[in-house]
């Protein structure tokens, strides 16, 4: 009897399952995204203080949430690769990194756009923005390290080690940035409560973005598996030619 994770570990099995799941997840993400956007832009009130600009929140907060969740997913996949040698773990980590970086970048971009009307400038060294910026650097490091290494199996393990180091240091970074921020500007706390009328659209958008991420992640994992198959086939083809040439040479020598 195979356990569920063992069955999922089989790439062929994964391709079959993901092909069946993907339309459902994409569909659900699409529907939720459309309804979330409607709620966010038309069916929810403007803020009494921030006016219409508060609607940036409905994009910003889900992106910020995903920036952290995706790093967690990468760390988890990295753990799965290093400890359990799960064959799909590296595919998952590799596919997630650019997506996570993109959502982190969107979080920074929307945060900065939101900052203009709120703070009067596109960038302030707010504790949360700064932490997200450093998180963005960690994503860049992961992607740069992987692209710099030629041997794919070594690249997978080394990137996984870096991801785990990152996830260990991340709380310390967060803590020190918060400390630094209170030291320099003690009163920029915007963790005011969200009005209930805004809570529903925010929740819908958060779920929609999460599903959107998983749809893209699955698609990217499928692409990566296909790419690896093509690569394996090509390697085999090259080795096969080599063997044929050797046989032909032997044949020639025998005659």
């Amino acid at each position: 009897m195979q356990t569920l994770t063992q069955r999922l570990a089989n790439p062929a099995r994964f391709m079959e399952l993901s092909a069946r799941l993907l339309p459902w997840i994409s569909g659900a993400a699409g529907i939720l995204l459309v309804s979330g956007l409607y709620l966010a832009f038309f069916a929810s009130p403007a803020d009494y203080q921030q006016g219409e600009t508060v609607r940036i929140m409905y994009i910003h907060v889900p992106c910020a949430w995903l920036s952290m969740m995706v790093y967690g997913l990468i760390a988890l996949s990295s753990f799965g690769l290093l400890v359990f040698r799960h064959p799909l773990a590296d595919v998952s980590a590799k596919a997630a990194a650019p997506l996570g970086a993109a959502f982190t970048f969107l979080a920074l971009l929307t945060g900065s756009l939101w900052g203009k009307p709120m703070w009067g400038t596109y960038w302030v060294w707010d504790a949360r923005l700064t932490s997200v910026l450093i998180l963005f650097f960690l994503y860049l490091g992961l992607m740069a390290l992987r692209s710099a290494l030629e041997d794919e199996s070594a690249a997978a393990k080394l990137t996984a080690i870096l991801a785990l180091v990152g996830v260990t240091i991340l709380p310390i970074i967060k803590f020190s940035v918060d400390w630094w921020n209170t030291l320099h500007q003690p009163s920029t706390d915007f963790t005011s409560t969200v009005d209930p009328s805004m809570r529903l659209p925010l929740l819908v958008m958060a779920v929609a973005f999460t599903l959107l991420f998983f749809a893209m992640h699955l698609k990217a994992m499928r692409n990566e598996i296909l790419r690896r198959r093509v690569k394996a086939l090509r390697t085999q083809a090259v080795a096969g030619r080599d063997r044929l040439a050797a046989q032909a040479a032997n044949h020639g020598a025998a005659e």
Partner: peptide, 25 residues
């Protein structure tokens, strides 16, 4: 991590400098 890479120095900076944030602060 970057022992075997070409242009290892730049990559090393990108990887390591974010980890130095707490020490710096």
């Amino acid at each position: 991590l970057t022992m075997k890479t070409r242009r290892g120095g730049l990559l090393l900076a990108l990887i390591v400098l974010p980890l130095y944030v707490p020490t710096l602060i």
